[in-house]
Amino acid sequence: MEIGSGNYGCSHYRRRCKIRAPCCNEISDCRHCHNEAKNSLETNPLDRHDIPRHEVTKVICSLCDTEQDVQQNCINCGVCMGKYYCAKCKFFDDDVSKNQYHCDECGICRTGGKENFYHCNKCGCCYSMLMKDAHRCVERAMHHNCPVCFEFLFDTMRDITVLPCGHTMHLECARQMEQHYRYSCPVCSKSICDMSQFWKKIDQEIAAIPMPQTYQNKMVWILCNDCGANSHVQFHIVANKCLSCNSYNTRQTRGGPATPCSSGMTEMVS
Rank of each mutant, 00 (worst) to 15 (best):
S40H: 08
N35T: 04
C33E: 01
E55D: 14
P45H: 11
R20C: 15
L63W: 07
I51A: 06
E26K: 13
S28N: 06
C23F: 07
N39L: 04
I27Y: 03
H49D: 11
I27G: 04
I51N: 02
N44S: 10
H54Y: 09
H32M: 10
K38W: 07
N25R: 12
D47P: 03
A37Y: 00
C33S: 02
I60S: 06
P45T: 10
S62Q: 05
S62A: 14
C23K: 08
N44D: 15
R31Q: 09
T43K: 14
H32C: 05
E42C: 14
P22D: 14
S62F: 00
L46A: 15
R48P: 08
K38A: 12
S40G: 15
N39P: 04
I51W: 01
A21P: 04
N44Q: 12
N39K: 04
V59G: 01
H54L: 13
R48K: 15
E26F: 07
H32D: 13
C33I: 00
C61W: 02
N25F: 09
C61M: 03
D50L: 06
A37N: 02
V56Q: 05
E36S: 05
C24W: 10
H49F: 09
C23R: 04
N39Y: 02
K38P: 05
R20Y: 09
E36T: 00
C23P: 09
K38E: 03
I27E: 10
C61V: 06
C33M: 04
R48W: 05
E26Y: 13
I51T: 10
I60P: 13
R31C: 08
L41P: 11
R31F: 09
T57I: 08
K58P: 01
L63Y: 02
C30T: 04
D47A: 13
S62W: 02
V59N: 00
T43F: 03
V59K: 01
S40R: 04
C33A: 07
H32K: 12
P52H: 08
S62G: 13
L63F: 04
A21C: 15
V56H: 04
P52C: 07
K58N: 08
R48M: 11
C24M: 11
I27N: 05
S62C: 12
E42M: 11
P52F: 10
H54I: 07
D50P: 01
C24G: 06
D50G: 11
N44Y: 02
A37L: 03
T43M: 14
I60W: 00
V59A: 01
E55F: 10
C61F: 08
P52Y: 06
V56G: 07
R31E: 06
L46G: 10
R20L: 07
A21S: 15
L63I: 15
E36V: 01
E26N: 13
R53C: 05
A37K: 01
D29K: 14
D29Y: 11
T43Y: 10
R31H: 13
P22T: 04
H54G: 06
T43Q: 13
K58E: 12
H32F: 14
V56S: 05
H54E: 13
C23V: 11
K38M: 14
D29N: 10
N35V: 02
H32W: 07
R31L: 07
L41Y: 08
H34Y: 03
E42W: 09
T43C: 08
R48H: 09
S28P: 03
